[in-house]
């Protein structure tokens, strides 16, 4: 099993007192499998994604990724996890504005020490970014920027791709194209995919689906 999540709990302190975002979540994901996380705003799906991606730590429970309990990792270990094992596609793209498209695509792979120029070129070609490699992100449209972000994630050959509403900032037509490309390429690399979305249509295109309600699996 690529990923096993057991009884994850997470509580945030807010102005109105403690708020339990996740109240005992279990899930598992095999390599090559794709899973949609759906649920209303505030149901805890993004938080779950962040915990799995090592961007945050759970209060209780276990996240085992490739046989490793990531809750037990320190800051440096989680950083290594983020650059080597998982790849996150953000809703806001989060590109580095001062780097050219080509350097943005290679960035995470370089951090991980896994930069493969041929593979990066293939990704850029498939994403239709080849003509734009020497441009800066601000010169691209939103759809193009998200394709850069996806290419950046896949360039590092992650075992698990995490995507947080990757098309949330795009119009419908663009979203369709981007989603097609992402699913196709994830399938090609054999990675697992965990995607947060509020779109029923997108969720339906993934192999499995998990619906969250008030921090629990519905």
């Amino acid at each position: 099993m690529l990923l096993t999540v057991t009884d994850i709990q997470k509580t945030y302190q807010t102005a109105d007192g403690p708020f339990a975002v996740l109240r005992g979540i279990d899930l598992c994901l095999a390599a090559g499998e794709t899973l949609a996380l759906t649920g209303e705003s505030g149901s805890g799906k993004s938080t779950l994604l962040h915990l799995i991606g090592g961007l945050d730590t759970p209060d209780a429970g276990q996240i085992v990724l490739q046989g490793q309990d990531i809750a037990a990792l320190d800051d440096t270990g989680r950083a290594a996890l983020r650059r080597g094992t998982v790849g996150v596609v953000f809703q806001q793209f989060n590109l580095i504005p001062s780097l050219k498209v080509g350097d943005n695509i290679a960035f995470q792979a370089r951090l991980a020490g896994k930069h493969d120029p041929a593979w990066a070129a293939t990704l850029a070609e498939k994403m239709g970014l080849t003509p734009h490699l020497n441009k800066y992100p601000e010169q691209l449209s939103g759809g193009q920027q998200q394709r850069v972000a996806i290419a950046r994630t896949l360039a590092a050959k992650p075992k698990l791709v995490l995507a947080d509403e990757p098309t949330g900032n795009l119009d419908e037509a663009t979203a369709g194209v981007v989603m097609d490309l992402m699913l196709q390429l994830v399938a090609e690399t054999g990675a697992g995919l965990l995607m947060v979305t509020h779109s029923e249509a997108l969720a339906a295109r993934l192999s499995r689906r998990l619906h969250l309600r008030a921090g629990q699996v519905a």
Binding site: T76, A79, A80, R82, R83, G84, F90, N94, P97
Partner: peptide, 15 residues
């Protein structure tokens, strides 16, 4: 600040 956050999210160790 945003770039720093992105780089860390992409796995750059804080130290």
């Amino acid at each position: 600040r945003p770039v720093v956050r992105t780089m860390r999210a992409l796995g750059l160790p804080l130290r």
